[in-house]
Nucleic acid binder design. Structure first.
Length: 428
RNA sequence: GGAGAGGUGGCAGAGCGGUUGAAUGCACCGCACUCGAAAUGCGGCAUGCCUGCAAGGGCAUCGGGGGUUCGAAUCCCCCCCUCUCCGCCA
């Protein structure tokens, strides 16, 4: 959510930010809405002021037993009140019009974000590791579907389709275990070595929460809905909303939360994309990181968070590159985003496995999440950051494809073996 | 799901429908006393918005939303949440 006062102070800067995102300038429209709102407020408050004053006089008149005067005052107020409801309505409408419009405008890109129309404009930030040369590299589903056990393939899309339709998968046996091992490994790493507090949050949340992080109102169609809850599209939602409507003290910051949860996405706009395999699913597991920090610390926290996510890749010894997302490819709430893309030999390309974003005070405004600075007059908005550390389903893909052997088996990465009872190889 | 109790400022906790944005206590911040501290005394201390160059003025907010009334923290309705008991149940 943007601060209309900042837009008023610097409308051209605001419009420039929107343009960078590929959007039309909006400051003129927003300021007009704000003017209308202010006018409505002024009219309403003026009427309320006289109403209140008269009402008070009625009180003293009654106290003085001056019924005649009280009666005449009451008549006067009655006349005045005739048009107060209209003024209330127009104030409400004017305020809502502005708020609704603001609610669907994305965050502005930070100053150091490269400009570009879409993912082709992303800029490599750094790379790590060297992609292995694997002759006739297979894709993860070719490997997984070939392995049998427990009444079907260890990676079974047919069974999943029977149960739930497309974009679901059933994992069996060693693959199910490896998925669990990956998740355990990640959450343990972040909580024991990176200072994150493990959180087990609700997976179903209310409108307010999903509005707070910015999925509502624009991305309704990307989420699944139960009777009166949303299934979380990412644990960013519950973790970040933990501080909604709160005023933290400065020495509570930074707050760092990590959660290993399923995520649910409708993938409404992705029909036909990545339909093969388990790259893009309606349900997947992800280890999410969220930081709540003081504004002046958010840039360094962003670097730190990226490093925490990278540590997962390094310990798994998976080659990756970090991309700085350009203005046209960033998510709604982000002011700057780094994606980690892992090398996927079966496809011979890099695929996103993590996304680390700073949101500035954009989400904090929506959530009304503040802190009280030590040397301060009033509370200020916190800054929020979120990052995947990392997507477990995609990590499984990466492990399978990077660790595949010529005989169709897969070596278990050393860091996962303790989580898999010492198992060194699967699929054999 | 059923019955009951309740949601007031950072916390605790008052509040006959009339000048209550809200007593009181604690916490916090100034000042005084003190060599210093404690104790004590005095003063200050909610948020958002509108308006104004400013000083200031105004509006709203006592879980949220409606309503009654000239006037609502106080009365009525709906919703949310918490607690207790019952039922059901991992």
């Amino acid at each position: 959510m943007h601060d209309i006062r900042l837009i008023r102070e610097n409308p051209t800067g605001f419009d420039a930010g929107l343009t960078a995102r590929g959007l039309a300038p909006l400051s003129a429209e927003l300021l007009a809405l704000d003017d209308a709102r202010k006018g409505a407020i002024l009219a309403l408050q003026t009427a309320q002021e006289s109403r209140n004053a008269l009402s008070q006089e009625i009180g003293s008149a009654k106290k003085a037993r001056d019924e005649v005067r009280a009666k005449s005052l009451m008549d006067e107020v009655a006349r005045l009140k005739g048009y107060v409801p209209e003024l209330e309505d127009s104030e409400r409408e004017a305020s809502k019009a502005l708020a609704d419009r603001l609610a669907e405008i994305p965050n502005l890109p930070g100053p150091d974000v490269p400009h570009g129309p879409d993912e082709t404009g992303n800029v490599e930030y750094r790379t790590w590791g060297t992609p292995r040369t694997i002759a006739d590299a297979k894709q993860h589903f070719e490997l997984g579907e070939a392995w049998k056990g427990g009444g079907g393939s260890l990676m079974d899309f047919e069974a999943a389709a029977k149960l739930s339709g497309s974009r679901f998968v059933v994992l069996r046996g060693q693959l199910a275990r490896m998925e669990r091992a990956l998740g355990q490994f990640m959450i343990d790493l972040h909580t024991t070595e990176h200072g994150y507090t493990e959180v087990s949050p609700p997976l179903m949340v209310r409108d307010d929460s999903v509005y707070g992080t910015g999925q509502l109102p624009k991305s309704r169609d990307d989420m699944f809905r139960t009777q009166d809850h949303w299934l979380i599209p990412t644990a960013e939602v519950p973790l970040t909303n933990l501080v909604r409507e709160t005023i933290l003290s400065e020495d509570e910051l930074p707050l760092r939360f990590a959660a290993l949860t399923p995520c649910f996405r409708a993938e409404a706009g992705a029909a036909g994309r990545d339909t093969r395999g388990m790259l893009r699913q309606h349900q997947f597991t992800k280890c999410e990181l969220v930081s709540i920090v003081a504004p002046e610390r958010s840039a360094e926290e962003h670097e730190r968070m990226l490093g925490c996510a990278e540590a997962v890749m390094r310990k798994l010894d998976l080659p990756y590159r970090v991309m700085t997302l350009c203005t046209g490819d960033m998510g709604f709430a982000a002011t700057k985003t780094w994606d980690i893309e892992v090398w996927v030999p079966g496809q011979g390309t890099y695929r996103e496995i993590s996304s680390c974003s700073v949101c500035g005070d954009f989400q904090a405004r929506r959530m009304n999440a503040r802190y009280r600075p030590k040397e301060a007059k009033g509370p200020r908005f916190v800054h929020t950051l979120n990052g995947s550390g990392t997507a477990v389903g995609r990590a499984l893909i990466a492990v399978l494809e990077n660790y595949q052997e010529a005989d169709g088996t897969v070596t278990v990465p050393a860091v996962l073996r303790p989580y898999m009872g010492g198992l060194e190889r699967i699929g054999g």
